[in-house]
């Protein structure tokens, strides 16, 4: 009898019981830290005040105020936006092109698809290291090829105005395969009849793309752009590994600033302020995109 009671209790509350582990972890690992980040950002919490609590003070918005006038941080924001503005359209465009090329079952298309996708399943850290070798001014193959074409060797990552462009190129190369896959999945959902109808009207491949594929991929495109934008904003591994934000801050990004403030300088209050600002930026961008994109794509 008692056993039955327990059983029926368990069964009646199955929903809650099944969901509680995830809810609990999410609460502990997302909501609590988020609130903590918010609270910490209004204090001067640092290594100093953690080791000696007497130094801990509530400093109000001063972390935010000093960040927004801090040229180094503004440079980081600027670099991150520059990266995003170049990577998102180029990567999305390239991915769409790839998807159109490899859509099909011919062997060469399968091989190409794999080679486009390989960088995605090679981690960013590995690729950063590989590109550091490729772009090495003295022993890297790229400079050697350039010199064979009698072009001056380039400093690449060691030059202020080239470093970010190198990181952009390599990031586009790394991520395009992923978006290509998303586009391919989107293309599978396009009814075949539409292409058949187009074939009857003798439309060219370009017209096929322009009037059938692209319009029907609208939602996929929005999704891809959104995801890519957020990923682009998180730019960290490449500058952290390849350039440490240099030369002369040319590849300093928001997350690298966050990391340096927290784990190199030990200023957790200030770093938390950066993380909250970062959250606000990501939130704003995704809200804006969600509202703006459909119109732009229609026109």
């Amino acid at each position: 009898m008692k056993q039955l009671n327990v059983r029926s209790f368990l069964d009646r509350n199955a929903g809650l019981i099944l969901s509680i582990p995830a809810l609990f972890i999410l609460f502990l690992m997302v909501i609590v830290p988020f609130v903590m980040a918010l609270v910490t950002s209004f204090t001067n919490l640092s290594v100093k005040s953690l080791l000696n609590p007497n130094h801990l003070q509530i400093t109000g918005v001063s972390n935010y105020a000093s960040l927004l006038t801090d040229r180094a941080f503004l440079t980081a924001i600027q670099n991150t936006f520059f990266f995003t503005v170049l990577v998102v359209p180029l990567q999305t465009g390239l991915a769409l092109l790839f998807a159109v090329i490899v859509k099909g079952t011919a062997l060469w298309q399968k091989v190409l698809k794999t080679s486009f996708f390989l960088p995605v399943i090679t981690s960013m850290a590995v690729l950063s290291v590989v590109w550091t070798l490729l772009l090495n001014p003295s022993i890297g193959p790229i400079n050697t090829i350039l010199s064979l074409l009698s072009i001056e060797p380039q400093p690449f990552l060691t030059h202020k105005s080239q470093a970010m462009l190198c990181i952009i190129t390599m990031s586009i190369w790394q991520g395009a395969g992923f978006q290509m896959m998303v586009f391919l999945a989107g293309m599978q959902a396009i009814p075949k009849q539409l292409y058949e109808a187009a074939a009857i009207e003798h439309s060219s491949p370009w017209q096929n793309f322009r009037y059938v594929t692209f319009p029907l991929l609208r939602n996929t495109t929005i999704f891809v752009i959104l995801i890519t934008t957020i990923f682009a904003f998180k730019l960290f591994i490449q500058p952290h590994l390849i350039t440490q934000g240099g030369p002369q801050n040319a590849t300093m990004t928001i997350i690298l600033q966050l990391y340096n403030q927290a784990f190199v300088n030990g200023s957790y209050g200030k770093a938390s302020a950066i993380s909250i600002l970062f959250f606000v930026i990501v939130l704003t961008v995704s809200l804006v995109q969600r509202n703006l994109l459909p119109k732009e794509i229609k026109s």
Binding site: A72, P247, N249, N265
Partner: peptide, 16 residues
């Protein structure tokens, strides 16, 4: 105590 920041900016200055 802020040597890290200082050197970053000073070296930037020389470079620029």
């Amino acid at each position: 105590a802020a040597y890290g920041t200082l050197t970053l900016e000073i070296s930037s200055l020389f470079y620029d």
